[in-house]
Amino acid sequence: MPTRNTSDVIVIGAGVVGAACAHYAALAGLSVTVVDRGPVAGGTTGAGEGNLLVSDKEPGPELELALQSTALWRELVGLLPPQVEYEAKGGLVVASGEAGMEALREFAARQEKAGVTALEVPGDRLHDLEPHLAPGQAGGFHYPQDAQVMPALAAAHLLRHARGRIRLRLGEEVTGLLTGPAGDLRGVRTGAGELHAPHVVNAAGTWSGAIAELAGAHLPVLPRRGFVLVTEPLPRVVRHKVYAADYVADVASGSAALQTSAVVEGTPAGPVLIGASRERVGFDRSPSPEVLRRLAAGATALFPVLGSVRAMRTYLGFRPYLPDHLPAIGPDPRVPGLLHACGHEGAGIGLAPVTGRIVAACLTGTEPPLDIHPFRPDRFTPPAP
């Protein structure tokens, strides 16, 4: 019988990935404790744009995750309230020249073989989809499977939906892991005391590497900083998630240097969100006027109408980056009882449901919804001593 300090599984992290793991574990009949040093969605999730994308993913393991998760998000819409702002608005990738358009054609052709719907849009028809888009674009591709959600509210409602089986311990930092004589996990230690469970899920986002280290396991999760500009509320001047073709290359890049590419999308509440930037600078939260200048320039180049619009605020977040751009999902063979659900970089919101389904399957001994070998947590070689 679960008590206040015992449960079947402890999930470290109350972001959207941790919330999805807790949600699906609870639906599978397990009692779950979610522990986080801050509030629900207080880390990367709260700084996310809410993208649920297939358009930016090369064929392979991550795209398989994304396609399954896209279907799961559509199922979740029937369970969660409208406040999560799920919007199946689709994505539009545009190329300014013919060389970029040819690269998009080749990319889309590979994606279509993997199950993605990608519809070519000639340059003279782009305004049918986006009336305010800058003229002179060579063309683009419309991805109707792309969607958006309000990530913080999605995380909160995933936890709330199964609240009878999910206990929240917020404002409690995990300082250690409890182990048995054979090294198997028995729970966690926080500043408020011990929590006991035979399984622990590491869904701590950019801090997942530190949690793994507490268990003596190497998992090289690093923070990759990104800024977002938020405009004043507007009529719906941007209908889709619209981004320039070079965004796909930036997502796949492992460079630590600053990269920016134009990404613009409207929201049901009115403000337009403008990204995207990527750089590895640790957990530096300093403002960067250069990044913001680049974001504004990229957005107004795509949508000149935004040139006269006020930016009301900016915020930043840290994507949990792993060197091969694939998340770590599933049991850690080095530490019995430890599972990982982390390292999704900028795709965690989109991939959260399928990650939760995989973790729940591993916890209950059932078959995961897809092959999880590419996401094994022990695939990284520890650094030489």
Rank of each mutant, 00 (worst) to 15 (best):
V237L: 14
N202E: 04
A217K: 03
K241N: 15
A204M: 07
R189A: 13
E213K: 05
K241W: 10
N202H: 02
A155L: 14
G193F: 12
T206S: 13
L214R: 02
A154F: 05
R236G: 12
Q145N: 11
L158G: 08
G226M: 05
L185S: 01
E232A: 11
A192Q: 00
H157T: 09
L153H: 11
R163F: 15
G164T: 03
Y243F: 14
G187Q: 09
A215N: 06
A154V: 02
I166Y: 12
K241L: 14
V188E: 07
L153F: 10
R239F: 01
L159R: 00
T175F: 14
E194S: 12
E213P: 00
G164E: 11
E172P: 09
T190S: 05
T175A: 09
R167E: 14
E194V: 10
L153V: 14
P181E: 09
V174G: 13
E173Y: 08
G171C: 07
R224Q: 11
A217Q: 07
A204C: 06
R224C: 15
T179W: 04
L185C: 06
A154S: 10
A215Y: 10
Y243R: 02
A197T: 05
H196E: 13
G226N: 01
E213G: 12
L159I: 01
L229I: 04
A147E: 05
A182Y: 12
A210S: 13
L168G: 03
G171E: 04
P198M: 06
H161D: 14
V242E: 01
R163C: 13
L177S: 05
L158P: 06
T175P: 07
R186C: 15
R189E: 15
V230L: 07
T175N: 02
S208D: 04
